[in-house]
Simulated scan of single mutants.
Amino acid sequence: MANIQYYDVILKPVVTEKSMNLMADKKYTFLVHTEATKSQVKEAVEKMFQGTKVKNVNTMNLDGKNKRRGTTTGKTAKTKKAIVQLTEDSAEIEIFEGL
Rank of each mutant, 00 (worst) to 15 (best):
A2T: 15
A2E: 14
N3V: 14
N3C: 15
N3R: 11
Y6E: 09
Y6D: 12
Y6I: 10
Y7I: 13
V9T: 04
I10V: 09
I10D: 03
L11T: 09
L11P: 01
K12R: 06
P13L: 04
V14E: 01
V14W: 01
V14N: 00
V14S: 04
V15D: 01
V15R: 08
T16P: 03
T16K: 01
T16S: 05
T16I: 07
T16V: 05
T16M: 05
K18W: 03
M20V: 10
M20F: 12
N21W: 11
L22D: 08
M23H: 12
M23V: 07
D25W: 13
K26C: 11
K27A: 11
K27R: 10
Y28G: 00
T29W: 02
T29D: 01
F30G: 00
F30H: 02
F30S: 04
F30W: 00
L31I: 04
V32I: 01
V32E: 00
V32G: 00
V32M: 00
H33T: 03
T34L: 08
E35F: 07
E35L: 02
A36F: 03
A36M: 05
K38P: 11
S39I: 07
Q40S: 06
V41L: 09
V41K: 07
K42W: 06
K42G: 12
E43F: 13
A44P: 07
A44V: 04
A44I: 03
E46R: 07
E46Y: 11
K47F: 10
K47S: 05
F49L: 14
Q50R: 12
G51V: 09
K53Y: 08
K53S: 12
V54S: 07
K55M: 11
K55Q: 12
K55T: 15
K55G: 15
N56C: 13
N58I: 13
M60R: 01
M60H: 06
M60G: 04
N61K: 06
N61Q: 03
L62V: 01
L62T: 05
K65Q: 10
K65I: 10
N66L: 13
N66H: 15
K67G: 14
K67V: 10
R68K: 14
R69L: 15
R69P: 13
R69G: 14
R69M: 15
G70M: 13
G70C: 08
T71Y: 11
T71C: 15
T71V: 15
T72W: 15
T73Y: 14
G74N: 10
G74S: 10
K75R: 15
K75E: 12
K75T: 09
K75Y: 08
K75C: 04
T76S: 08
T79F: 06
T79K: 03
K80N: 02
K80G: 00
K80S: 04
K81E: 02
A82S: 02
A82E: 00
I83V: 05
I83Y: 01
I83R: 03
I83P: 03
V84G: 02
V84C: 03
V84T: 03
Q85Y: 12
L86S: 07
L86V: 05
T87D: 08
E88T: 13
D89H: 12
S90L: 15
A91L: 13
I93M: 13
I93S: 09
I95N: 02
I95D: 08
F96C: 04
F96N: 02
F96D: 02
E97T: 03
E97C: 07
G98H: 05
L99E: 08
